[in-house]
């Protein structure tokens, strides 16, 4: 079973702690009034956690579009 750690939406932990990361999968398009376009709801995850239904295998660093 895949874990969050293999997911391409995860970005590195804030400290370099290899056991945690930040999930950046949850995005929303913003209203016209806002000058930026996207909001990303970050979520702190343990890399040992089982993946969620949005899991996509890959490594985040390979696809800059998924990053912030």
């Amino acid at each position: 079973m895949a874990t969050c750690k293999e997911c391409k939406f995860i970005t590195p932990s804030p400290t370099g702690d290899p056991s945690t990361g930040i999930c950046l999968v949850d995005r929303m398009q913003l209203a016209e009034t806002q000058k930026t376009k996207t909001a990303i709801r970050g979520k702190m995850v343990q890399k040992s956690m089982e993946s969620c239904p949005k899991f996509e295998a890959g490594e985040s660093w390979k696809d800059i579009k998924n990053l912030i």
Partner: peptide, 10 residues
Amino acid sequence: ARYSQDTIIA
């Protein structure tokens, strides 16, 4: 990344 680029355009 696109998110960052958009903040400069904004």
